[in-house]
Amino acid sequence: MKIIGLIITIITGAFLVYAAVDFPAWADPNSPASTYLSPYFIENSMKDTSVPNFVTSLLADYRGFDTMFETTVIFTAGLVCFILLRISGGKEPETRHYRHVLTGVTVTLKEGRKIPASEDFERIDDLWTPPDLIIKTGCRLMIPFIQLFALYVIAHGHSSPGGGFQGGVILGASIILLAISHDLRTALERMREKVVAILCPVGVAIYAGTGTLCLLLGLNFLDYSALASVLHVDPISARSHGILMVEIGVGIAVMTTMIWIYNNISSAGKYNQGL
């Protein structure tokens, strides 16, 4: 089985190399991309979409299909991690550990026993170590600013480097930082598995839904100028707003995928005791 895989990989690789020979040379000024495509985007993106950063307008508007499927690829990566690693249900371990928050006393319970229902006990892991106060406080200071910066990056993709992918990764990193500095349970309390699993496809659906809305309003898929009648603006700024909607979808999808992958890999799919 491994040998067959190896042969397929080598053949595909050979085809790729063979196809790459036909590409124009690196930085060739006479290649089709440099003769009419790039100058068009550089000169007309402001006129067409009123987005000063033409990388964003290129990525989310002229080349919207590509970015949509990039988002889908990221979603698929998260989904695959979930399907391969997640061990759902399973037996409860025979002994469970609880910690009395106020006094720091740890209670170990044998199978079937229950603690009195109270808010003072928190469930802890076998390998639980007290989170370090300095790290905890430092991260708690930083996380809100990281999230604020991430929102800024998403919203400011129109006029500066940034956008949904970068902002989404920063947002995801802030939650992962919470999981590293405290423990996985704390992060899961803020961002439950269900929430992550729902938001991830929702992000992709926002992107595809914006495209479909354009289709329903009578223009091509992902042609945002169709949104002008809904948003009550002229078609050019409608394209700008359409890009923002799409970026928000990308941001949500990327953020949740990062968290999803981290949760699954760090706890080997058991969601009980990650880092």
């Binding site: 370090d132 300095i134 790290i135 430092g138 991260c139 200071l141 930083m142 600013f145 500095s181």
Partner: peptide, 13 residues
């Protein structure tokens, strides 16, 4: 400010 908070915390970690 952020370097002042983050860098010692990271070293401590």
């Amino acid at each position: 400010i952020f370097v002042f908070v983050a860098s010692p915390t990271a070293t401590h970690a």
